[in-house]
Nucleic acid binder design. Sequence first.
DNA 1: CCGAGATCGTTCGGCATCAAATTGTACGGG
DNA 2: CCCGTACAATTTGATGCCGAACGATCTCGG
Lengths: 190, 190
Amino acid sequence: MPSQRSIGEAEKLAEAKLGGIALRREQMAAVANIYRAASAVRQHLENSVLRGSDLTWTAFVVLWVVWVWGESETRHVAEEAGISKGTLTGVARTLESRGLLRRAGHPTDGRLVLLALTEQGEDFMRQVFPAFNEEEAFVTARLSDVECRSLADGLRQVVLQVEEEGEDRRRSLLNGENPTPRRSGRRARK
Amino acid sequence: MPSQRSIGEAEKLAEAKLGGIALRREQMAAVANIYRAASAVRQHLENSVLRGSDLTWTAFVVLWVVWVWGESETRHVAEEAGISKGTLTGVARTLESRGLLRRAGHPTDGRLVLLALTEQGEDFMRQVFPAFNEEEAFVTARLSDVECRSLADGLRQVVLQVEEEGEDRRRSLLNGENPTPRRSGRRARK
DNA sequence: CCGAGATCGTTCGGCATCAAATTGTACGGG
DNA sequence: CCCGTACAATTTGATGCCGAACGATCTCGG
């Protein structure tokens, strides 16, 4: 499916829709392609290396984080994996039920929970990670090492921008008004 | 949170974990950052421009696709939005319930369903899209126009690689064996 | 000690998500 | 016409996903 043509056309159509109002084309194309690429990569990996063990991308990332960082507190894992702590609770439960992850209370601080791989989890990662990395190489096969590095650099700038200035930006956009609560999400009990 | 340091450190830790086994560093960093950037951008947009109208990223993308392409068949919308048609059914239902989207049967082919914006949906997009584009510019603010373009080009290569060669690749990875069915998903009735 | 705040992980509600199964429609050949 | 095949969208089941509410625990000042 020639999605690239689509993006180009869609841009023009959008510009027409807006009747000549200024449009940040490059920025729009960059964002659109970031998301498109992320979906494509995730889908490819879930349907290749991860399929056999029936793990989702997120579950694998969590496993990966705990693997490389060693036993860690959940909030650090969530932060590093890029998911909310609420989500991590569920993912960790799934992983625990498959015998790959172990959870333990912190020895001195009763609020904390520590996550670590089980022996089976370690074996799993030793076996699967090389295959995963192989597919990372596959999806980027059209780029040279230098191009990969430059791509990563560009993306890092985006991540940094949002991480360092996103919160201020969002505050100033609302200016003053308190943020609308989400339609979904837990309600007060009373 | 200095996530960049994390990525760099994690790479080294992973290499140590694998005991000197060849690791495609650049490729790994590129993929990791694609996903990280995509999450950051999505999160920022959902919590800024989309928050007021309580729309998810996906819902907005669907709206956007229908807006720029005009009344369209669902499978094209799903393809363009990068979601499965099953997901689209649900998202379209949500959007319909908010009065932004309208669904209609195809005049001559009874299998098809056409999606179009309602008048309210048109108004919404005219009003919200400029703000959305403004935030796309915000998240990419650390990149010049040229860098944005080059970033988009690199990402396009990734998308193309997966779209054009992903299926073959996945087939050859399984070589012969039929793909493990997902744990989730519908079961045969009998 | 003790109570106010801060901080943790978990629970909860409402959507999103995928792939396979299913239902409904179209269309060509016999 | 009828049947089989092809293709559309929807349903289904299990999980992911977020953010707000929650209950448990820590910390520090008095």
